[in-house]
């Protein structure tokens, strides 16, 4: 897999996935004049400001009204537009979940939901704003595609790809700058998982990760390799539809033991999606990295990743635990 050659260097570029989305939205807008953007008073935070400046007549300010925004977008989609709706994940798909369910998914309307500021890395704003439930909320809806990009470049590609599908999709973004682990040449396809780290000897376990924690997962795998423990890492950017074949192959080549890593509640998220599939098709011991049925709180992103047990050291501990099972 072609990744950023600087992936293990300390001067790796840092960029927020919401920045990547911003570039992707401009590309999508250039390509298709039906692409429109709607925002609920968070245009700069969600990084729709670039699109707004370039295409002011294709941007619609909704005011602080996320429920209305979802259904307005549904109406626009019915008229042939490709609406991108933006807010923080806790408000969209959080607050407006039922509007998304009925007016977007039930109608199979071509609306793209952009949920920024997901997870505890929101930081100082505190638990009310740190959405740890959105993957669950989105993936439980029929017709919905769910994508959690691992870095800014993948976020850009996912945005462009989403604009070309004809169905509802959710893109989960983060606030802080995170490591850019892929390269422009790294392939991206909705619904395809990718092995991002293969250890030099046969893997005894595998990490399935999504979002910026893919980077922490790769770092953990590299450190473990130096300790003589060999684990591989799968980037599961599309959580729904699940790349069943890719996941199965990964389990087979990774010692039949899996650690799911995500910045989300352990219940209902990406790990849950993988577990549901594997329990039926290839029962596999699993460990879960994520929030343990708790809300977040104020702090720096690093403090909170540590406190809620989602960083590289927690991932390494989980590997050691699963190897004993």
């Amino acid at each position: 897999m072609i990744l950023n050659p600087k992936i293990f260097s300390s001067d790796i570029e840092m960029k927020a996935t919401r920045e990547g989305f911003s570039e992707g939205l401009l590309l999508a807008g250039d390509e298709n004049k039906n692409v429109v953007a709607l925002c609920a008073d968070l245009t700069e935070s969600v990084k729709m400001d670039g699109f707004t400046k370039k295409y002011p007549e294709r941007f619609f300010e909704m005011g602080i009204a996320e429920q209305s925004m979802a259904s307005v977008a549904s109406g626009m989609a019915a008229m042939g537009k490709v609406p991108f709706i933006g807010s923080y994940a806790v408000f969209s798909p959080g607050r407006n979940w039922e509007q998304i369910r009925t007016t977007i998914c039930y109608n199979n309307a071509n609306v793209k939901i952009i949920g920024s500021h997901s997870g505890v890395t929101v930081g100082e704003d505190g638990g009310s704003h740190q959405c740890l439930e959105d993957i669950a909320l989105a993936r439980v809806l029929p017709n919905m595609t769910v994508i959690v990009p691992c870095d800014a470049i993948e976020a850009k590609k996912a945005t462009v790809a989403m604009a070309k599908t004809n169905t509802p999709a959710y893109l989960r973004l983060s606030r802080p700058k995170t490591a850019v682990i892929t390269a422009e040449e790294t392939p991206f396809e909705i619904g395809k998982s990718q092995v991002f780290f293969t250890p030099k000897e046969k893997a005894v376990a595998g990490i399935v990760a999504c979002g910026h924690l893919v980077y922490d997962s790769i770092k953990a795998a590299k450190e473990l390799e130096n300790e003589g423990i060999f684990v591989s890492v799968l980037n599961l950017a599309t959580i729904k539809p699940l790349d069943e074949e890719g996941v199965l192959q990964f389990v087979e080549s990774s010692g039949g033991k899996i650690i799911a890593v995500e910045e989300h509640q352990k219940y209902g998220g990406m790990g849950g999606a993988v577990a549901e599939f594997l329990a039926k098709n290839r029962p596999t011991p699993m460990e879960f990295i994520g929030a343990d049925d708790v809300f977040g709180q104020s702090g720096t992103p690093d403090e909170l990743i540590e406190r809620y047990g989602m960083g590289a050291s927690s991932i390494k501990e989980a590997i050691k635990r699963i190897l004993e099972r």
Binding site: E124, G126, Q297, G299, R307
Partner: peptide, 16 residues
């Protein structure tokens, strides 16, 4: 205010 462990969460949290 807004620091890890503080009762003064970035937005009011009554549990704190």
């Amino acid at each position: 205010l807004r620091k890890f462990g503080s009762r003064l969460q970035g937005h009011p949290h009554r549990e704190f």
